[in-house]
Computed example of a mutant assay.
Amino acid sequence: MELSASVSIQHTDSGLEYINIDSPLCTGKVFLQGAQLTEFTPKGKSSLIWVSADEDYQEGKPIRGGIPICWPWFGVHENADWPIHGVARKLLWRAEEVNEFSDHIVVRLSLPMRLVDETYWPHKSKLEVEFRFSEQLEVRLTNTNLGDSAFRLSQALHTYFPTSDIENTTVDGLQGASYIEFNEGPFIQQDVISFARETDMVYTQAGAAQTIHTPEGAIAVTRENSHSCVLWNPWIEKSKRLSNFRDDEYHTMLCLEAANVMEDMAIVAPGQSHTLATTIRWI
């Protein structure tokens, strides 16, 4: 991996390794643990990614914020003792490519499948994620089937977005989509979404583009190969139970997650690939 002057390998005080991006286009960070992005800031603008002020970056522990990769299942598995949101966000990924171009920087990582317990994932496959940094951020998570039978999985790019005031933040573009919340529904989203309580909505038949309106400005969020997404804010009581999360931080964040969940689960035939992608930018 050849690193330019604007891309370097650095470590947290706790020893976790990350790829640091500092270019005329933007700044960013991608940790090898979990292939988890924790920073994307276009030059001259504020950050598009939120991380808890209480995050301590410990080995084997998911980072609270950024873009965790939920794979090969999202949420609680039907086997209740299996890890929530799968296994990928705790494992050490391998940096495969870092390339700088005139108008963007590409960082690509892969998950060594020897690290994945076959109890959780018995299939022959390849998993890669590509981050494309410019004035916007594009994330592409690709599953390739190397076996002789199809497999299916659920997954999500669990993006944490910042806001200075969740009660003055709205999400537009989900009108008409079907959703369930707290195992109730399905319901049809009628209006632009505002926040006044714990929110945990899993949407299907969702349009490919949403807009988050915050006091700092509007954020455009788009998805590819995804008809489902998740909208989450823990609000007051759940915030008190979350690890690496201050009691009042629900006020400064929300998650809008590109996903393949429920009837939108990804099915990958032998020799084929499926790419879940999301792009975020300030409008």
Rank of each mutant, 00 (worst) to 15 (best):
S6E: 06
D13R: 13
D13K: 11
G15C: 10
L16N: 04
L16G: 05
E17A: 08
Y18S: 00
D22M: 00
L25R: 01
L32I: 11
S46R: 14
D54R: 06
D56I: 04
G66F: 02
G66M: 00
I67S: 02
I69F: 04
F74I: 03
N79D: 12
P83R: 02
R89E: 01
L92C: 12
W93P: 07
R94A: 14
A95V: 03
A95T: 08
E96Q: 13
E97D: 05
V98N: 01
D103C: 09
V106F: 05
L111Q: 08
P112C: 08
E118D: 12
T119H: 15
Y120I: 05
P122W: 06
H123S: 03
S125K: 04
K126D: 07
E130M: 13
S134F: 05
E135F: 09
L137G: 02
L137S: 01
D148C: 14
L153E: 12
L157R: 07
H158V: 06
H158S: 09
S164H: 07
N168V: 07
F195K: 08
T199D: 02
D200M: 09
Y203E: 01
T204N: 11
Q205Y: 10
A209T: 15
I212T: 00
S228P: 11
K238P: 03
L242D: 10
F245V: 15
T252W: 00
V261H: 01
M265T: 03
A266C: 11
V268P: 06
G271C: 07
A277D: 00
A277S: 13
A277W: 02
A277Y: 00
I280Q: 04
